[in-house]
Design a protein around this nucleic acid. Structure first.
Length: 227
DNA sequence: CCCTGATTCGC
DNA sequence: GCGAATCAGG
């Protein structure tokens, strides 16, 4: 299998949307994850959180925080735990707006302009994200693992498919990759962010003072796959 | 062990 | 340029 233009394009978009090399390889077919990674590097695609990537020592003027204070996120352990999630209060796909938000009315807008404790937010994968002001430009949303069908689906006629992704549209995933209805939000992005304004509201939430906020954070791809 | 991405190096 | 082999962290 050769790297056609389309395949490269798909690779770029999947890489950019945060899918793992393995997933990309499975989706493309005919290539190994090594091939995907190798190609990604040759294409100059941005590195992504790698287990083998030390923190690049910045020169100066960077108020590096030695202890970023681990965000208090109850990891739902997405992998290998299909059983007990029967009636788990999972958040459905990222809702369009309001209602489900526990916020006291304040806008969860991505406006990191406070002192005090560093505001943290989570991406679709439950990733702790850094604010635009801090370092770390390209952290992609956490992908689910494993694509099962990995089949091209045309059931997503009017939806925003992987191939429709670009820098201008919201990459907020809806559904599960590999499933027929998987697609992306597709709205116009909030300039400077990978998501539209509405989804930025979900992706970038200020760390509220652990008081009233029972509702679980937005879960990836509409929640863990139940199988 | 499993997973991940990074890198190397023969092709 | 390609990607298997290898490395290395989680």
């Amino acid at each position: 299998m050769s790297w056609t233009d389309e395949r490269i394009d798909t690779l770029k978009k999947m890489w950019d949307s945060g899918l793992t090399a393995t997933q990309i390889a499975e989706e493309l077919g005919g290539v190994s994850r090594n091939a995907v990674i190798g190609k990604a590097h040759r294409l100059g695609l941005p590195s992504r959180p790698s287990p083998v990537k030390p923190n690049e020592p910045k020169v100066a003027a960077a108020p590096a925080e030695p202890k970023p204070a681990p965000a208090p996120r109850p990891t739902p352990a997405p992998s290998a735990s299909p059983a007990p999630v029967a009636a788990a209060p999972r958040a459905p796909a990222p809702a369009p707006e309001s209602a489900d938000d526990d916020d006291d009315g304040d806008a969860p807008a991505p406006a990191p302009k406070r002192e005090g404790p560093v505001l943290r937010s989570v991406g679709p994968g439950g990733f702790v994200r850094q604010n635009p002001g801090e370092q770390t430009p390209p952290i992609a949303p956490a992908p689910p693992r494993r694509l099962v069908p990995a089949k091209p689906s045309d059931a997503i006629a009017g939806k925003t498919s992987l191939l429709d992704l670009n820098d201008k549209i919201c990459k907020w995933p809806l559904g599960h990759p590999g499933e027929p209805d998987f697609h992306f939000c597709g709205d116009k992005v909030n300039p400077g962010f990978p998501y539209c304004v509405a989804h930025c509201g979900h992706a970038y939430q200020a760390q509220l003072p652990r008081r009233d906020r029972r509702p679980p954070p937005p879960l990836p791809f509409g929640g863990p796959r139940v199988r």
